[in-house]
Amino acid sequence: MADLLNLQGWLLVLLQTVLFVLMAPLLTGWLRLLKAWLQNRSAPSLSQPYRNLLKLMKKEVLVAQTTTPLFRIAPYVVFATTVLTAAIIPLLTVHLPTAAIADVIVLVGFLALGRFFLALASMDAGTAFGGMGSSREMTIASLAEPAMLMAIFTITMTAQSTNISQAIDFLLGQGLVLRPSFMFALLALMLVAVAETGRVPVDNPTTHLELTMVHEAMILEYSGRHLALMEWAAQLKLMVYGVLISNIFFPWGLALDNTPHNLLLSFISLIGKLMVLSVVLALAETVLAKMRLFRVPNYLNLAFLFALLGMLSHVILEAGA
């Protein structure tokens, strides 16, 4: 594992992780801006998510009497796992030393670890909302995770590597090939991303209506810097899925070598890809209404079906060809 001793590689990892973390609120802000435009409202400024986070960090922390230390550990675990996920996804450059440390399955594992602590922390205070959010989140996740893994397996089987850098490198090397399996995998991953990041039509991040909340019900007891971490982690997770989808299915523009020129080009193409993706999401959120909770399994079954079709079409049509 010679990559490990490459100082330049590590600096790039550091740079792209910091960039990832700092850009996440911007993506959320941009999404809100788009939605406001689409819905004919006057939009908040792009810096609003940053101001919210800063405000929360300055505020006093209130902790429910019934909670245990787990409640206060959880935000850090959730944030740390999400940052680690961001650190292994190629954002600007393909060759990351971190990609060898944790492959795509570990990436899904990181997200699961964060979710595990989030769900536990929400049950810690012993309120009805916490248990409700936790139960719903875990239900949705337990159906979304296999669909996501199936979609990812389709890609890794094509690239013959679960190392995400290697896989993207392989896909870039292949040039523009239209694979039916990838179309299905893309659809599946987009459906899963909407469910996992708690967007309409699965969950609504802007609601506090008790009957429909999922994510908000879980973080109801949090305040101050803990809440800031939780919110930031959620924004980061949205960005993780956005970058994952855009850089796996549309890897063009990613820098193969680390010259400043290529990195800049890669950054510009990334912005472009994310902007297009967020337009799709904003449109969907504006057009669709939130589903009833018990229709979500059907939605996720659809994602699973797409993922399965993708895998089958890979095995039948593409493998060995």
Partner: peptide
């Protein structure tokens, strides 16, 4: 090493 690797200590 190219197809998959996981390093728990580094994680």
């Amino acid at each position: 090493a190219a197809s998959a690797s996981y390093s728990a200590p580094l994680v």
